[in-house]
Simulated scan of single mutants.
Amino acid sequence: MSDLGSGDEGISGSKYNASGMEGTSGRSDFDSTGKAQAGAQQGEQELATKMLQIQSKRFYLDVKQNRRGRFIKVAEIGADGRRSQVYLALSTAAEFRDHLSTFSDYYASLVKFTGPPNPDNLPEDGKLKSEMMIKDNRRYYLDLKENARGRFLRVSQTITRGGPRSQIAIPAQGMIEFRDALTDLLEEFGTNDGG
């Protein structure tokens, strides 16, 4: 599965608006100017969605399908309305779910033995644990990090042929909730990418 998702969809008219509420007129394939959104142009179909509120962030896990197969789009909406997203093939999402279990176990041991983050004694690069996943032409970097605001899992996605890096940051306290939501979607749709 090479290019799973399209570029940024317009925030206007989408469920990812600043208020966090879905559009009042329901799902539309057109933005406020009447132009077709990127998803409609590529024949994307949304099969399911889950929304999680973790601290001040909202996360949307959308199972989508296009001519290349099924995938999950994970969108992070910050308190200020900024939006970041990564795309995961269903098989990659299953691997990511397994890594989430490992990272949350590691995080639980950190809390148990070292307590909360100490701003005076942070790791030099902030990294506590790292893993990498590869799927076709995409690389995913998973870094459990610590900074003055706390611990979080940074998930970065790059396309090996170049292109921008996209990333989301999941607060460490929400990793289990995130894993459980992902598990529910994978149980419903399986791990076969199709396409």
Rank of each mutant, 00 (worst) to 15 (best):
Q157F: 07
D120P: 00
P119G: 09
H99N: 14
R161S: 14
P116V: 06
Y106R: 00
S101E: 15
D143Y: 00
T160A: 13
M133N: 15
P171R: 10
F103D: 09
S130F: 06
F113R: 10
A172K: 03
V111Y: 01
D120R: 06
G150Q: 01
A108C: 02
D125V: 00
P119R: 10
D136E: 12
I134D: 05
F103N: 04
S91W: 08
Q157G: 04
L144E: 05
T114S: 13
E146G: 05
T160Y: 10
N147P: 06
P116S: 11
I159G: 09
G126W: 02
G115I: 02
D136A: 13
A94Y: 08
L100D: 07
S109G: 04
M133S: 15
R139Y: 10
D143I: 00
Y106K: 08
T92Q: 03
S130E: 14
G150K: 02
V111N: 02
E146T: 05
Y140D: 01
L100H: 04
P123G: 01
Q167V: 04
P117Q: 05
R151L: 07
T102V: 14
P164M: 07
S104N: 12
Y140L: 02
A108L: 06
M132R: 15
D105S: 13
T158E: 15
T160R: 15
F103C: 09
A94P: 04
H99G: 10
Y107L: 11
F152M: 11
S91D: 13
K112H: 04
T160P: 09
R149L: 09
L142F: 11
T114C: 05
V155T: 12
S130R: 14
D143K: 00
P171Q: 12
P119A: 13
D120S: 13
Y107Q: 15
R161N: 13
G126A: 01
K135V: 07
A108H: 07
S166M: 04
N147C: 08
K127F: 06
A108S: 13
G150E: 01
R149V: 09
T102Y: 08
K135I: 00
T92M: 06
Y107I: 04
S109W: 09
F113I: 10
L110H: 01
L110D: 02
N147H: 08
R149C: 05
H99C: 13
F103Q: 10
P171G: 13
G115C: 04
N121D: 14
